[in-house]
Design a protein around this nucleic acid. Sequence first.
DNA 1: ATAGTATATAAGCATATGATTATATTGTAT
DNA 2: ATACAATATAATCATATGCTTATATACTAT
Lengths: 108, 108
Amino acid sequence: MDQIMDAAEKLKLLGDKTRLTILCLLKDREWCVCELVEVLSISQPGISQHMRKLKSHGIVNEARRGQWVYYSLRVQDKPYIQSVLEYMPGTTDTLSLLNKKEPGQICK
Amino acid sequence: MDQIMDAAEKLKLLGDKTRLTILCLLKDREWCVCELVEVLSISQPGISQHMRKLKSHGIVNEARRGQWVYYSLRVQDKPYIQSVLEYMPGTTDTLSLLNKKEPGQICK
DNA sequence: ATAGTATATAAGCATATGATTATATTGTAT
DNA sequence: ATACAATATAATCATATGCTTATATACTAT
């Protein structure tokens, strides 16, 4: 059962439009929290909490650089998640779907 | 956005341990409701409601035969769901994980 | 028509979830 | 040390979710 329960938990994480959008954005490059805030219509704490969930399930990596925290995909070892994302739009297309441009180099 | 939202909705359906188990059981053959009740630890209405959700999103087909309603997978046109299920256990292995035997030919 | 079996729908409830605002923490720069 | 920017955590809240029990519907058989 553990195998199915573990997969269900991770799929539930993908089953939220905000998180799935974040994962799509992460397909082609890493993003810091403030960039995600700029592009998605959610508060900064909202983003932080989504990232914490994704991180706690090992779906993203976290890298602090200065005052910024960058997140990147970590799905090499999760083939079913990887294959789902292969069918999803990448960074550029996702930005288009959001009617947003690449965020400026640094926030604020 | 529709593409991502639609995928998120469907992935949310997979992100429940009961429903994901049902889909695993459906990998190799169709099942009727009473068989699922026999094998999962959930009430008959509980199963019915899960099946309704899966059906309403086109993930399963429904076929009434006599007083039984049989459900089968319908994921040919949903490649990302298909690929997720490819990484999941099939009917026999799932039954093992549940510590259950194939249900008797007909219920009750 | 009646009884019995299989399934669906309705109603209710406890818990989970995604969001927000307020506040704390961490790091940078002066 | 102070001020500011980026991020995290805490508290709160409204809604969604998964389950149950009770009841309705559909089909079969006598």
